[in-house]
């Protein structure tokens, strides 16, 4: 009798483990290959998302109250700094508007309706973050009903923050650029140096120093510290011209061939309340 029970327990444990690992394998396949998860999963996630919004509301309220107090304390010094920037901003805005107008006229003359820089903006707010060190994932409040597509780039007010990995009907998951997993889609980026544009890929993220590592650079052009880095629009997922950050260090890679460049990300990945999803329109 004792032996029988032992066997039964062993069988339960083994079957559970097998089912568990099959489920893990299944969900990784879906995550890598399919545009949306199965319908049951989508509805489940949306239902959970609605409940989560109710729970999350008071917590966000508490956080906002704390932020208001700290904002108030730093208002004066911030105001001084901003005053000096306002004047130049107005001039820049005017010149940008003229350039944009000229650009659209030129595009019209060339009969170029769509280019890599065109994208549709969808704003959403972050509902919750995965309480896990290994998944740098945020759930946002819009999904396929609002037109969000898988692999679209996601930005905050400052710059690029991540990409959409899972689209449900009314919520989706965003993987932040700080994730280091093997299957993460790499962003194609471009350095705007004085000597010209240099293309490459974001290959990894350095967790200790909060720097993105850009590699796959074959160009021999000079790159300076502080040069701006934008997405290049290659690869078909992200539009061109989304600000990623600035170059903080330039060095040769392990083989001495291409350069390895450290980028300081512009966006603060730990302070996401409202994000914008950039859907390519071409």
């Amino acid at each position: 009798m004792q032996r029988f029970f032992f066997n039964k327990r062993l069988i339960i444990v083994l079957v559970t483990l097998i089912i568990g690992f099959l489920l893990i394998a299944f969900s990784i396949t879906v995550r890598n290959n399919k545009a949306t998860p199965p319908l049951v999963q989508q509805f489940g996630n949306d239902a959970v998302g609605i409940v989560d919004r109710v729970v999350g509301y008071p917590v966000t309220g508490i956080e906002k109250a704390g932020a208001t107090v700290s904002d108030l304390l730093s208002t004066y010094s911030e105001n001084q700094k901003l005053k000096s920037q306002v004047d130049s901003l107005a001039a820049e805005k005017a010149s940008e508007e003229t350039l944009q107008r000229e650009n659209s006229q030129l595009k019209k003359q060339l009969k170029l309706n769509k280019s890599l820089t065109n994208f549709q903006k969808i704003s959403a707010y972050a509902i919750s973050r995965a309480p896990s060190s290994w998944q740098n994932q945020v759930t946002i409040s819009k999904g396929s009903l609002s037109g969000i597509k898988k692999n679209a780039a996601v930005l905050s007010q400052e710059g690029l923050v991540g990409r959409v990995t899972e689209v449900n009907k009314a919520s989706s998951k965003v993987e932040l650029i700080s994730s280091t997993n093997d299957t993460a889609n790499r962003f194609a980026t471009q350095i705007l140096a004085e000597s010209g544009e240099i293309n490459g890929l974001i290959t990894s993220y350095d967790k200790d120093s909060n720097r993105l590592i850009m590699g796959q650079i074959t160009s021999q052009k000079k790159i300076k510290k502080g040069d701006k880095v934008i997405t290049s629009g290659m690869g078909g997922n992200s539009p061109k011209g989304i600000y990623v950050g600035s170059v903080s260090k330039v060095e040769k890679d392990d083989y001495g061939l291409a350069s390895k460049i450290e980028i300081k990300p512009a966006a603060d990945l730990t302070d996401l309340t409202v994000v914008t999803v950039a859907n390519r329109t071409d």
């Binding site: 409940v51 989560d52 729970v55 999350g56 917590v59 966000t60 508490i62 956080e63 972050a126 509902i127 919750s128 973050r129 995965a130 309480p131 060190s133 740098n136 945020v138 759930t139 967790k207 200790d208 120093s209 909060n210 603060d268 730990t270 302070d271 996401l272």
Partner: peptide, 18 residues
Amino acid sequence: LFLDGALSNAFSKQMFTL
């Protein structure tokens, strides 16, 4: 469970540092 997610998002600056 939802409280965990909401707290992680609201205080991610304090909870997920370098």
